[in-house]
Design a protein around this nucleic acid. Structure first.
Lengths: 216, 216
DNA sequence: AATCTAGTGTCACACTATGACAAATGACAA
DNA sequence: TTGTCATTTGTCATAGTGTGACACTAGATT
């Protein structure tokens, strides 16, 4: 049945094993205190081989953030075209978070570990925010395509995306206390969405700006 | 007259010389193609000494972004307390940008070089965005203090800051074309501010949220 | 002038990351 | 099963960033 050969399965198991070993070591000893050599030793491979699976320590620590990004992109593509951009993005976020929450318990655990790690490691939080910024640009291009405008000259798609991503980021950042479970995290994101939605003028993202520069 | 000794003046000149040498080398050969050794050689010091002036290459390349941050923080402190948070932040940004534009021509040039460099170096853009995120947290604390709320539990200050900083970031990012002069940059930031201001419900940041979670 | 102190250079080292090449191992056909 | 091929892995070597230790120089202080 399984179309995947032994090789690919082995590769995937190695990836997971590396991520698990890395996350546990990072959380136990701290991110910068842990060397790639220790991680490689933990799964019995050479450091050189580790770099063939992951581009580096950072990639290893944040590999699960790209999963959220993939879910989000997929969810956005599923949103009906007539849905206003802000609502489409916010709903895509909701769907993506729900998807992650419904994956295997070990996977959810890995996400929570990743977030706990980020919370205590400024360098990693920085890299995660950098990734979010890159995602923002990609999402802006998607939103621009939805609306049929040019993302190069029109700042509006980027603005809409920035609003939603900012809310999500603020919601996911843990103020002082620890990340308990996925539900708590989703609740905070929802509350941030609500705050921003409340600040916005209804229908602002469907009609053109009130005082657009070139009406002539 | 000058209260500063020879030592401090020398130190400042060395800092500037290092930044200038670094920016020019980065722009000429690319950021990652340039080694700290080359920069150190250019100003006739040992690499070890360079690390006593700057924490690393990144610090060297982005040292001028902290200047904007300092101006901004200072400008925000100057805004009248009764000014609504969004307006206070946006105006502080305007003042800070004007301040930078009015500094010495060489300094303006350094800022533009820094931005050109960032535009062509993803890694640096990432670090810059990371710095912005840190600044966002600090600004949120300031805004929370202005309004007398707790930045730990209340997400609203963070949201306001995120809106303004997002607009500024989107405005400063150059879509494909090169950074010409300071005026062009300010104009794009203004246009992004206008877009976000247009999207917002007037007075949203002075009154409490319309449907705060617990009305029971 | 003698002394103190901050800054500097030299040497050494740990760690991340990458390239080159040989060895091992799964995939696949005869 | 066995031999061949492609992929993966380990070993060795190297570049580059970043730090610690320690002696030395030069400005600062009295």
């Amino acid at each position: 049945m399984s179309r995947t050969g032994l090789r690919e399965r082995k590769k995937l198991r190695m990836r997971q094993a590396l991520i698990d070993a890395a996350l546990d070591l990072f959380l136990a000893q701290g991110y910068e205190q842990t060397t790639v050599e220790q991680i490689a030793d933990a799964v019995e491979i050479s450091p050189r081989t580790l770099f063939r699976y992951f581009s580096g320590k950072e990639d290893l620590a944040l590999s699960h953030t790209s999963e959220l990004e993939e879910e989000l992109t997929a969810a956005l593509a599923e949103r009906p075209p007539q849905e206003p951009p802000f609502a489409a993005l916010a709903n895509a976020f909701r769907v993506a978070l729900r998807q992650l929450g419904q994956s295997s318990p070990e996977n959810v655990e890995r996400h929570l570990k990743t977030r706990r790690l980020m919370e205590t490691t400024p360098a990693l939080m920085g890299r995660a925010i950098t990734r979010m910024a890159r995602m923002e640009t990609r999402l802006a291009a998607l939103v621009a395509a939805r609306q049929g405008v040019d993302p190069g000259t029109d700042q509006r798609p980027h603005i809409v995306v920035a609003l939603v991503v900012s809310a999500a980021r603020i919601g996911m950042e843990c103020p002082s206390d620890e990340v308990g479970d996925m539900g708590e995290l989703v609740a905070r994101v929802e509350s941030a969405f609500a705050l921003i939605e409340d600040a916005l003028r209804p229908g602002w993202d469907v009609a053109p700006p009130r005082a657009a520069g070139a009406v002539s």
